[in-house]
Amino acid sequence: MSDPKAPSKTATGDVARSTSSSAELDAFLNKVQSLQPAASGRGRLIVAMDATMSRQPTWDLALSLQSEMFRAVKEVGGLDVQLMYFRGFGECRSSRWVGDPDALARLMRQVHCEGGHTQIRKVLSHARQENERQTVNALVYVGDCMEENIDTLSQLAGELGLVGVPVFVFQEGHDAGAERAFREIARLSRGAYCRFDAGSSAQLRELLRAVAVYATGGRKALENAKGGAATLLLEQLR
């Protein structure tokens, strides 16, 4: 873990230099094709972030990636997003559902990192509860570590898979224990796992955007989208 820094919305730091392998990114695209868009009405997507202190050095990068994802679907429309984050001593919050990507970006900029343990269990439980109220098309989770019981998380991930809520997990860094847990969460929920760092940020930005566009409008929306990730995804859908 990096040396703690005072919470700041503009703090930056070094990130791992190795990039995700092309095979890993291809595997992610293969998994994304299984995400089924809403048959009618608006798509609903939960975006959850680990906002504990270990994320501080690259917080700006994470916010930038997620802001890009929702700006990409602004012209398409039809996507409601809920922002969720955890940090500090048991703090775990979720926003209202937001249909305006600009409003979501403003919400994200208000979050800063604080020391604390992971609360992924709360994220998965919340997604299940929200889906019981109204269909949730997917959950995106961004984090770098895992400090919880993997069997508990696996049970919750499997329950999400049964009700059709895939978890798309994006890992920052190279924590081996977290990777094993994240891959299992993705597998059991019928979602996908992918790592991101400075070297792969551009491609992963496109992947995030492709997930959001597909969750909103399915194949037709992807055909109208721009970017290499949308093209690659369409090739996988054939």
Score class of each variant (00 low, 15 high):
2 S>P: 14
2 S>H: 09
3 D>L: 12
3 D>T: 07
4 P>D: 10
7 P>N: 08
8 S>H: 13
9 K>T: 12
11 A>D: 03
14 D>C: 13
17 R>P: 06
19 T>Q: 09
21 S>H: 03
22 S>T: 11
25 L>S: 01
26 D>C: 01
28 F>A: 13
28 F>G: 02
29 L>W: 00
29 L>K: 09
31 K>A: 15
31 K>V: 07
34 S>Y: 07
35 L>F: 08
35 L>R: 08
36 Q>R: 14
37 P>V: 11
37 P>K: 05
38 A>H: 13
40 S>H: 14
40 S>F: 13
42 R>H: 08
44 R>H: 05
45 L>K: 11
49 M>Q: 09
51 A>F: 04
54 S>H: 03
57 P>N: 09
58 T>K: 08
61 L>T: 03
61 L>Y: 03
62 A>D: 09
63 L>Y: 00
63 L>Q: 14
65 L>E: 11
65 L>K: 07
65 L>R: 08
67 S>I: 10
69 M>F: 01
71 R>Y: 07
73 V>K: 04
75 E>N: 10
75 E>C: 02
76 V>P: 00
79 L>W: 04
82 Q>E: 08
87 R>Q: 12
89 F>P: 08
89 F>H: 11
92 C>V: 05
92 C>P: 00
94 S>F: 03
95 S>L: 08
97 W>Q: 13
97 W>K: 12
99 G>D: 09
101 P>L: 07
102 D>T: 15
103 A>K: 13
108 M>L: 12
110 Q>V: 11
111 V>Q: 12
111 V>A: 05
113 C>K: 05
115 G>M: 06
115 G>F: 03
117 H>I: 11
123 V>R: 06
123 V>A: 13
125 S>R: 10
126 H>W: 02
126 H>R: 14
130 E>P: 02
131 N>K: 01
131 N>D: 02
135 T>M: 00
145 C>Q: 15
145 C>S: 14
146 M>S: 07
148 E>N: 10
151 D>W: 03
155 Q>E: 11
156 L>R: 01
160 L>N: 06
161 G>D: 05
163 V>P: 00
164 G>M: 05
165 V>H: 01
166 P>G: 00
167 V>S: 08
168 F>A: 10
169 V>K: 02
169 V>I: 10
172 E>V: 00
173 G>R: 07
174 H>L: 15
174 H>W: 14
175 D>C: 08
178 A>G: 12
178 A>D: 03
179 E>Y: 02
179 E>F: 02
179 E>H: 07
181 A>T: 10
183 R>P: 08
187 R>K: 15
187 R>Q: 13
187 R>M: 06
191 G>L: 12
192 A>N: 07
192 A>E: 03
193 Y>V: 07
199 G>H: 05
200 S>G: 02
205 R>G: 06
206 E>W: 01
208 L>M: 04
209 R>V: 00
210 A>T: 04
210 A>W: 00
210 A>P: 02
212 A>Q: 09
215 A>L: 01
218 G>R: 05
219 R>V: 15
220 K>S: 14
223 E>D: 13
223 E>K: 15
224 N>Q: 15
227 G>H: 05
231 T>K: 15
234 L>F: 14
235 E>A: 15
236 Q>M: 12
